Amino acid sequence: MKVVVIGGTGLIGSKVVAGLGEHGHEVVAAAPSTGVNTLTGEGLAEVLKGASVVVDVSNSPSFEDQAVMDFFRASTTNLLKAETEAGVTHHVALSVVGTERLQGSGYFRAKQVQEDLIKASGNPYSIVHATQFFEFAKGLADGVTQGDTVHLPDARIQPIVSDDVAAAVVRTAVGDPVGGVVEVAGPEAFQLEEFIRMGLTAQDDPRKIVTDPQATYWGAELGENTLLPGPDAHIAGTRFADWLTRQK
Rank of each mutant, 00 (worst) to 15 (best):
Q191P: 13
G139D: 11
A215Y: 03
T145S: 06
T172P: 09
D148K: 11
T149Q: 02
L227W: 00
I196D: 00
Q114L: 15
V113T: 06
H129E: 13
K138D: 08
E115Y: 12
I157R: 00
A173D: 01
E100Y: 05
V128K: 04
F190Q: 05
R156F: 15
S121N: 03
T145R: 07
L200E: 10
Y107F: 11
V181N: 12
A202E: 08
G98P: 03
P231H: 08
G104H: 03
G180E: 08
E193V: 15
P229S: 12
N123L: 14
E193W: 07
D164H: 04
Q132P: 08
Q103G: 12
P206K: 10
D204I: 03
D163Y: 10
A137S: 09
A215D: 08
G98V: 08
I118P: 01
H151P: 09
V181L: 13
A220Q: 01
Q146H: 11
R207L: 05
W218C: 12
P153V: 06
L140I: 12
G219Q: 02
L152D: 00
G175R: 06
G230R: 11
T145D: 05
V181T: 13
F134N: 11
A110R: 01
G219H: 02
G143V: 06
S121Q: 04
Q146W: 04
I118N: 00
P206T: 04
R156W: 11
Q132M: 09
K111S: 06
V170P: 06
A120F: 11
Q191D: 13
P229E: 14
R171S: 13
H151A: 02
L192P: 00
V210R: 02
